[in-house]
Nucleic acid binder design. Structure first.
Ligand SMILES: [Mn+2]
Ligand SMILES: [Mn+2]
Ligand SMILES: [Zn+2]
Ligand SMILES: [Zn+2]
Lengths: 144, 144
DNA sequence: ATTCACTGTGCAATCATTCCAAAATCAAGA
DNA sequence: TCTTGATTTTGGAATGATTGCACAGTGAAT
């Protein structure tokens, strides 16, 4: 889990996916790599707009959508009618705490699902979502 | 897979879940039982508003949300920032065709997931979503 | 300097959903 | 049957995430 990369490495990641490495795109990519909290577009915008005062919300939305379409990030629609983005595109599941809202990573509890076909359907994406109360919130509720 | 029930049976289903069986609630439940296509609130509203001209969109939204909170239906947020409702609350997965938009049921490819706890988190809900191109759309694309 | 393609901006529009206050309906009890 | 309080329903406004769009900026090539 690398949390900081050189400019050249970031550029390489975009070019590899056929995305032109503009200033804003690099900044948004850098943020996703450094903050693996499955942020929404709004969270990315809030975090970067102080450093880049001219940054437009629309640019953030456009960029994240582009990253998703090019396969650079995952798009999670786990709850709340909002899209969360994940720079980790390896197969893993997600857990959202209904108490604090945090989204945790979970290992896939299975492997046979790596199949590209199921009942004649062509599988392009595969998501496992859990919802509940997270470890931390549970321990706060019933203290030792 | 029962597609029609008596009024008394419908009432019983609601009362069992602690929901008062009003006219609109019974109609919406009846629709869900007869149309297992994972409809959105809007689809339910469109389907019923000709038969019940005074029906309010808000009532449909309120009712479906109530059904979900009482555990009578599943709520799917598989894509498109919209909620789809499923009268089948037994554990099963879903596949959404990116071509025609239909949502198919799939058997769970696993069983150990019935667990109520995972890495210390309390699991309340569990969803598996697939996206891709469905059998029908595939056969249209490359005909025999 | 001009052109062209691409990128970014800012505001309006869209779409699903929720909020809210008023109206309608219902269920006892007097 | 009338009264009253609780519940349900209504419909329009509000919200929140996302997208559309037209214009402005940028940068490389001519
Ligand atoms: Mn993740
Ligand atoms: Mn289903
Ligand atoms: Zn939590
Ligand atoms: Zn299809």
């Amino acid at each position: 889990m690398q949390t900081s990369m050189t400019l050249e490495e970031l550029k390489g990641m975009l070019i590899e996916k056929g995305i032109q490495p503009s200033f804003h795109r690099l900044k948004i990519l850098e943020y996703l790599i450094g903050h693996r909290t499955h942020p929404t577009a709004e969270e990315v915008y809030q975090a970067l707009s102080s450093e880049i005062p001219t940054l437009s919300r629309t640019t953030v939305y456009n960029t994240l959508k582009l990253f998703y379409q090019k396969g650079l990030v995952l798009a999670l629609t786990i709850e709340d009618l909002e899209i969360r983005y994940d720079i980790d595109v390896s197969p893993h599941g997600h857990f959202k705490c209904l108490e604090c809202g945090k989204v945790y990573d979970l290992p896939f509890p299975l492997s046979p699902a790596q199949r590209s076909e199921l009942e004649g359907h062509q599988i392009l994406e595969y998501h496992i979502y859990f919802r509940g109360i997270c470890r931390e919130c549970r321990s706060k509720q019933h203290p030792a």
